[in-house]
């Protein structure tokens, strides 16, 4: 499998070079059959590992027809899973949006001690396994955890309840917005902000009228990715959920439950909902990428800021 991945990368590279080269085949160093072999293997790889599984989800979901498909989605446990997933995303995404923008703003526009440490800290959730992310909250808020006794005495439920699920989700989606904005804001530099300051704008005005419009598309892109992960997270949420049906099951957990109950068509129906969400996300992402590329081209045709 490793072999075909390398091939896929190679062929993508040769694809990128091809249009730029003059005179077509004379400029490419590889013989035509090598090109086709590489393109073919890349396509076969993509079809086999990405496209077929995606189609399979929808085929399996509709195997028993549209009736059972919709029945699986309006069933009370499914509805509560959908609700919980939406609530979780509705809390996690805005919080990470606020955090991501502030962190990126601080890191890109100011110099301070411990900056590198902060960047590393932001990356932490990417490098830590989601299961560990869940377990740390159990260790902190669990009955035998650091705050366990206090929480129990005051009847506050964190893990095995909605707050725990939200916390775990916030943890795993932490880097998405910040990571998207930092390189963009660093590339843009702080000249425009400095100009605004010289012209007498206050901090809020600078942020609202200068910085925000510049990072708008990058921000939307980050939010979309953050949202996709927030709704699809399984590992971390599974650890803190307690798996109480109709109460602490999110959509991904609900899929697993249905699958384990031999309820395959319902499991795939629910899975197709998540797959659909992923497709919508990808669509939005492409639109945002396309729009921002166009804007950047229009703004600065000579210098390619994003690359």
């Amino acid at each position: 499998m490793a072999g075909s991945t390398t091939m896929a990368t190679t062929s993508t590279l040769s694809l990128h070079q091809a249009p730029g080269a003059k005179g077509g085949s004379s400029a490419t160093t590889e013989p035509a059959f090598v090109c086709w072999l590489l393109i073919g293997s890349a396509l076969a790889f993509l079809t086999l590992f990405l496209f077929v599984p995606l189609v399979a989800v929808f085929v399996e979901a509709l195997r028993k027809g549209f009736g059972p498909f919709f029945a699986a989605l309006v069933e009370p446990d499914a509805v509560s899973a959908i609700k919980l997933t939406l609530i979780t995303a509705a809390i996690a995404v805005p919080l990470n949006l606020v955090f991501g923008v502030s962190a990126a703003w601080a890191i890109a526009k100011f110099q301070f001690r411990g900056k590198q440490f902060l960047i590393t800290l932001i990356d932490l959730p990417f490098s830590v396994s989601p299961v560990i992310a869940g377990l740390i909250y159990v260790l902190i808020f669990g009955a035998n955890g650091w705050f366990g006794t206090y929480l129990q005495d005051n009847d506050i439920k964190i893990i095995f309840a909605v707050p725990g699920i939200v916390l775990a989700t916030i943890f795993v989606t932490f880097p998405f917005v910040a990571r998207e904005l930092i390189p963009l804001m660093e590339a843009q530099g702080s000249e425009e902000e400095e100009a605004a300051r010289v012209l007498g704008a206050n901090g809020f005005q600078i942020f609202w009228k200068v910085t925000l419009p510049n990072i708008k598309w990058g921000l939307i892109y980050g939010v979309i990715l953050c949202n996709a992960r927030a709704m699809g997270e399984f590992g971390a949420v599974s650890v803190v959920s307690g798996h109480i049906r109709g109460l602490t099951n999110t959509l991904p957990l609900h899929v697993e439950i249905l699958y384990n109950e031999y309820n395959f068509s319902a499991a795939f129906a629910t899975a197709s909902l998540l797959a659909l969400l992923a497709l919508v996300t990808l669509g939005l992402k492409s639109i945002v990428e396309w729009r921002s590329a166009k804007l950047i081209d229009a703004d600065a045709p000579t210098e390619n800021i994003q690359k």
């Binding site: 509705a90 439920k157 909605v162």
Partner: peptide
């Protein structure tokens, strides 16, 4: 909005 949703979630359980 986020906080009111969080509150709603908690009350739903308690």
């Amino acid at each position: 909005l986020a906080f009111s949703l969080l509150a709603a979630g908690t009350f739903g359980i308690a």
